[in-house]
Design a binder for these strands. Structure first.
Length: 281
DNA sequence: CCCAAGACCTGGCGGC
DNA sequence: TGCCGCCAGGTCTTGG
């Protein structure tokens, strides 16, 4: 079996996490865990080797996702909670595949092994007991942006009275999960809403435009990721958003594709934001 | 409760 | 060529 890489060297946004989930699930369902090897415990939280080893002998019943967290369900009702952070990826490898720098964990099955790779170590791997959605990292998460409970009325309602910027708000996982810096900027541009606007000042119509824009961005990236699952073989895959037209992200100083005026850059909560002062109000 | 700032980490880049 | 400093970003944690 060829090496398959899910996730990428670039930031795993929600579509990349979902593409990873879809990519690994068919290879892992029903597989029995034969061994676990941990070469680096210093991730976002230290790896609990004893707990990870206690999974040996269990089989995988499901691979789910909540926001950017992957949830690998095991046969004893416990779960592996995996986050790819900013630079993480999961690869299915064979015995012949040498360990690469920053490969931190390997789960060995009979025909394949799953390897966790994360140069910046912002990711996490936690073995959790109990209902996953009651876990402290998941219990306060907002709706999934592609589910029907994320709609313009919801965004309008939760944004009332909020003085924080709309960009900061849509990147806050308590209000809606999975919106990273790239999609936040692109969706705000597509919706014609300035990233500086107070969240509470958006009209119902603007909330509708923004929700539609976020959905469209994510759907397009997901479609791109899904259509290129095959290309992830051997690690040459690229995240979905690389195939999408990025109108503002990383284009500070360049001409707006709509009005041709130069795009501006500013910082919000330590993160860069690029936008068009003319097209976004 | 709400919001902002700090912390974590490495690869890649520009400047000298 | 090498060294240095800075930047990128998700999200938990801390502090006002």
């Amino acid at each position: 079996m060829a090496t398959r890489c899910f996730g990428s060297s670039a930031m795993p946004e929600l579509p990349e996490v979902e593409t990873t989930r879809r990519g690994i699930e068919p290879y892992l369902i029903g597989q029995t865990l034969l061994d676990v090897e941990v070469r680096e415990t210093r991730l976002r939280w230290p790896i609990d080797i004893v707990s990870l080893n206690s999974c040996i002998g269990l089989h995988i019943s499901h691979v789910g996702r909540r926001g950017k967290y992957l949830l690998v369900a095991l046969s004893d009702q416990t779960h592996l909670l995996i986050h790819l952070g900013m630079s993480g990826s999961l690869r299915l490898v064979t015995k012949e595949d040498n360990w690469r720098k920053h490969d931190h964990i390997q789960w060995q099955f009979s025909n394949t092994s799953l390897r966790f790779h994360d140069p910046r170590r912002f990711g996490c791997v936690i073995h959790i007991r109990g209902t996953p959605h009651e876990h402290r990292l998941l219990k306060d998460l907002g709706p999934e942006p592609l589910d029907k409970d994320f709609h313009s009325d919801y965004l309008y309602k939760v944004s009332r009275e909020r003085i924080t910027s709309i960009k900061t708000m849509i990147m806050d996982a308590r209000h809606v999960v999975g919106i990273g810096n790239i999609y936040a900027q692109e969706a705000l541009f597509a919706a014609g809403v300035s990233p500086l606007r107070r969240a509470g000042s958006l009209s119902r119509r603007e909330c509708e435009l923004l929700v539609d824009a976020l959905r469209a961005q994510l759907h397009a990236a997901l479609a791109a990721g899904g259509s290129t699952l095959r290309d992830f073989v051997n690690g040459h895959g690229e995240p979905g958003y690389f195939q999408l037209q990025l109108n503002v992200y990383g284009r500070a100083g360049q001409a707006c594709c709509t009005c041709k005026k130069p795009l501006l850059m500013l910082r919000q909560l330590g993160r860069s934001t690029v936008y068009c002062q003319h097209c976004q109000r």
